[in-house]
């Protein structure tokens, strides 16, 4: 790697909040036995309380999204009675009631599903776009790289939330769950692309790639079998954190009135609705906010722990 490539890579890592170890290699090769990166990483992860906290909350969120009935204490989110409007939390109804008199716990719990679907769908699109564009750009270089990099710069320069707002308002995608996920991904894939691109460029010039080429491997084979597997680790860290970021972004868009719409159940809608009642019924903003925060935090914590585990620089 040249100095400039190292600088580029380090910059991409800083932007993505992850690390590859390639920017400043310091792997200890004097160890008697070399474990694989992944078994080392798992050993490290197991001992990290941050990871377990994140994993437990992440699992809880997953369960909530799949079988909300388990958590709603028998209440139906759509069975409402106006006489209960804005009632404070009680022993019977832990989260109280919303303005329409619906059980709030049930509503908050049922909101997890849309968040999860949008988070996973959007991150999948981000990954596909990021990995394909990044790998092609880094591997082929030249004018292909210039063209794709400028294209990435264009999307990168437009503020993330703003781009999604304009896409959703333009109505070309509609306003459903899929539309929100795609709008978020359309303006959120660039960091993944840059990360993969830098990785590919860094790995491309290594000896084992030259060896594979000398043995007659095709471009496609080198890319899929030799280069991409070595670029997976930082992308995995980035993906984990990004799921949380995307879930928060969905709530933000919906809060601003351009994301999901009633009668969909979403934390963003609940916060938006509670906003005007902040002084009289703060629990309406409080509960969806807490659950949203804990969910996002779960993914960020898991990503953080994963990064620490995959970073060879941290090992003694």
């Amino acid at each position: 790697m040249t100095d400039q490539q190292q600088v580029d890579l380090r910059k991409d890592e800083v932007e993505a909040g992850t690390t590859t170890g390639l920017a400043s290699p310091s792997v200890d090769v004097t160890n008697e036995r070399q474990n694989s990166l992944w078994s080392d990483a798992w050993g490290e992860l197991k001992r990290n309380p941050l990871f377990w906290i994140g994993a437990v909350f992440g699992l809880l969120f997953l369960l909530m999204a799949i079988v909300p009935q388990l958590f709603a204490r028998g209440a139906d989110p759509r069975a409402c009675s106006l006489s209960n409007s804005n009632q404070k939390p009680s022993a019977e109804h832990w989260f109280g009631f919303d303005q329409q008199g619906c059980d709030y716990l049930a509503n908050v719990v049922y909101g997890a599903r849309n968040s999860l679907i949008i988070g996973l769908l959007a991150v999948a699109v981000v990954l596909v776009l990021g990995v394909v564009v990044g790998a092609v750009s880094g591997f082929y270089g030249g004018w292909v790289d210039s063209l794709l990099s400028r294209l990435t710069d264009i999307f990168y320069a437009i503020p993330f939330i703003l781009g999604a707002i304009v896409v959703l308002r333009s109505g070309i995608l509609g306003r459903g769950v899929v539309a929100v996920a795609i709008a978020l991904a359309a303006f959120g894939w660039m960091t993944a692309m840059r990360l993969v691109r830098s990785q590919v460029i860094a790995v491309k010039s290594s000896d084992y790639v030259a060896a594979a080429r000398a043995m007659g491997a095709s471009n496609g084979r080198i890319l899929l079998r030799h280069i991409l597997p070595n670029a997976v680790a930082p992308v995995l860290v980035y993906t984990t954190i990004t799921i949380g970021v995307l879930i928060a972004a969905e709530a933000t868009l919906t809060f601003l009135g351009v994301g999901l719409q009633r009668p969909a159940i979403s934390w963003g809608l609940q916060i938006e609705n509670g906003q005007s009642l902040l002084r009289t019924a703060p629990h309406l903003v409080l509960f969806p906010s807490i659950v949203l925060t804990v969910t996002v935090m779960a993914f960020v914590m898991m990503g953080d722990a994963l990064r620490d585990a995959l970073d060879p620089r941290q090992r003694a």
Binding site: L50, A248, A251, T252, I271, P282, V285, T293, V296, M297
Partner: peptide, 18 residues
């Protein structure tokens, strides 16, 4: 810093405001 990074700005804004 882990906690602050993970709190969506939307939530943080309301908490601070309230």
């Amino acid at each position: 810093s882990t906690i602050v990074v993970a709190i969506p700005i939307l939530v943080l804004a309301f908490v601070a405001q309230y």
